[in-house]
Design a protein around this nucleic acid. Sequence first.
DNA 1: GAGACCCTTTGATGTGCGTCAAAGTCGTGT
DNA 2: ACACGACTTTGACGCACATCAAAGGGTCTC
Lengths: 248, 248
Amino acid sequence: MPSSLKAHTECTATHTPTLKAACSQCGLKELCLPVGLNQSEIERLDNLVGDRRKLRRGEHLYRTEDHFEAIYAIKTGFFKTDLLTEDGRDQVTGFQMTGDLLGLDGISADKHSCNAVALEDSEVCPIPFANLEHFASEIRSLQSHFHRLMSREIVRDQGVMMLLGKMRAEERLAAFLLNLSQRFNSRGFSPAEFHLRMTRDEIGSYLGMKLETVSRCFSRFQDEGLISVQQKHIRLLDIPRLKALMSR
Amino acid sequence: MPSSLKAHTECTATHTPTLKAACSQCGLKELCLPVGLNQSEIERLDNLVGDRRKLRRGEHLYRTEDHFEAIYAIKTGFFKTDLLTEDGRDQVTGFQMTGDLLGLDGISADKHSCNAVALEDSEVCPIPFANLEHFASEIRSLQSHFHRLMSREIVRDQGVMMLLGKMRAEERLAAFLLNLSQRFNSRGFSPAEFHLRMTRDEIGSYLGMKLETVSRCFSRFQDEGLISVQQKHIRLLDIPRLKALMSR
DNA sequence: GAGACCCTTTGATGTGCGTCAAAGTCGTGT
DNA sequence: ACACGACTTTGACGCACATCAAAGGGTCTC
């Protein structure tokens, strides 16, 4: 066992050879921050990324108001981000999976503006932001890709606004399922069959509806042969009709 | 009349001395992109910003699918951004005023993902994005500020999600008015009295409600002595109670 | 492996906001 | 100054979704 023997707060890790992040070895590099970098640039990126951090289900990666110092690339696992108001309402603002970046919200004010919670045991690669900016100013393709990623987040949010502002409950759920499907697909998983990591309540919070309404919509979709639901296991049986559902 | 004699599509400009943008002379530099730059850096930024562009009310600054090449700083005026779906629904995703940046959505895919429309005669300073990235990689404070601006947009969008997902009609409108108030205030205008540049329909679209509901809420607020409404002229009479309204 | 708890489903009922409709007002262009 | 069109207001009514309630199932813990 070579380097990086630092003690970590881990209970379950049995024989992880090393915790050092290694973008150059990572299967996600076509999905994550290194997109568009050449081999030597990726190796330089390796030195920038901190030791991987493991989280158990339910653990917070960061909380609102936490000091911002790094963004996080999800190595494995599944997260949600949410906001909490003084009067106790909370709004899930997104679900993030393998290869997604977390923490971009923190840049604007040097502190996080939402909570990030692992919905299953997960592992993230922290990227100290000061280092990233330094590095980005040297490697143009990294800078450019990073800007695209931030912009993509803005575009994604526009889509959520459309969803929350203009769609009916069934359309929202259909859009949600199709979005997950497409994201699983681009990560090499089945686009037609997947496991939901979040509860009905969390789906509802994200989609601006109550958990009972989510449940009823699932049931109705199932009755109509659009999907099959078994707890958190979802199969999309008729993707074209699900898509059609969204434009009326 | 010195330089920049290029023909422009202007009908009304009578004696504009020059159309060249000049951040160094601009009263907005504490609000806009030059925040945090020193004098010599601002002067370099001047060379980067293109000739100012004037738009009449109703004109599009850019449209969905337009090729992305520049972001725009609003010199004067007022804009909305909106999305349009195939089936004709449209969602206003934001209102932008003096000093705000437009076009960040375009970075992610080299084309714009929404429409930007002037709600009154306006003037913008185009900032060619390739130049901006180049410049940002040289001037760290510019790079850093630009990242903050993008992140601020993400945080703003989170707030809109909360609004659309969790608030009732009255809360949404109160939040909307207070947001405008605060933004006018930070631009040196009265926080208690202002002119709405958008229609009830556009407000409704942004807030995820129908124009009739917007109108009714305005009337109710007025009846309760919270605001005074005269068409598009709004006076906030009881800001504390408007704020209180949002947490129940 | 048993119990507790959380999550989900389904039904009955209520309501906030949407829809439809019509009248009124303002701003704009001729 | 007039007339048209766009925007706004207000009322009556309906519906999609929320709320309240209760039972059933899954899963995690000890």
